[in-house]
């Protein structure tokens, strides 16, 4: 145990996700030895992020305004929505430069064993967005794991009667890898989701 504020800092850092007691101690001593201006900048950013950053009223993504940058952008395709679990998934998809529509961030995935059901996610908000008739296609990009697949099934069943085009991101082989190293589940999905090669 350290004295007073040093121990307080270690305790607070230790509460962050992925930071254990040893890492917390290392970061705390890094802060103690760092230039005061650097520490002040870090403290200001921490305060600023809590004050300025909100969740977009339309899609639920992190934003510094009422709406996020993507929802405000008039060049985006208003007819397509991509549904993701978390804001970090939006960043991952934006990196591909393949998608020009808008997003809807659910805030997680359905996991009854963890006590997370459909009402705990932003599904009602999604249904409200779909109700105005502008959107014609929905791409479900939840994680390719059990909870993500169950969420996709639930959404597809809910949205099916609305007559929209609903698709799910493909699963399969990673680009640049060798086929022999693929696990049987991924390889099986790659087979079931195979596409015709055009001449």
């Amino acid at each position: 145990m350290y004295e007073g504020v040093v121990q307080d800092l270690i305790d607070e850092l230790g509460r962050l996700p992925g930071v254990g007691p040893k890492s917390a101690q290392r970061i705390a001593f890094h802060v103690l030895q760092a230039d005061p201006a650097d520490v002040k900048r870090l403290a200001n950013v921490l305060l600023e992020v809590k004050e300025k950053v909100k969740f977009c009223i339309t899609c639920g993504n992190v934003a510094e305004d009422i709406e996020c940058r993507i929802c405000r952008d008039p060049r985006r395709d208003l007819t397509v929505i991509c549904v993701v679990e978390e804001s970090k998934d939006v960043v991952a998809i934006e990196r591909t430069r393949e998608f020009r529509g808008r997003y809807h961030v659910l805030g997680g995935a359905i996991s009854p064993i963890e006590g997370v059901g459909p009402d705990d996610l932003r599904i009602k908000e999604l249904m409200v967005r779909l109700a105005d008739g502008t959107i014609t296609e929905l791409i479900i990009a939840t994680d390719p794991n059990l909870e993500g697949e169950a969420t996709a099934t639930y959404l597809a069943r809910l949205i099916g009667p609305l007559g929209l085009t609903v698709s799910r991101l493909a699963s399969g082989l990673p680009v640049g890898g060798d086929l022999e190293y693929a696990d049987e589940v991924t390889l099986g999905r790659a087979f079931s989701g195979r596409r015709t090669v055009e001449n």
Binding site: S111, P112, I113, L146, E149, A150, T153, Y154, R157, V185
Partner: peptide, 18 residues
């Protein structure tokens, strides 16, 4: 791999989770 068959049917998935 029972998961692949269960996630396609929400009522079976929720029963399985319980």
């Amino acid at each position: 791999s029972y998961g692949a068959a269960l996630v396609g049917d929400y009522s079976r998935y929720t029963a399985g989770q319980a």
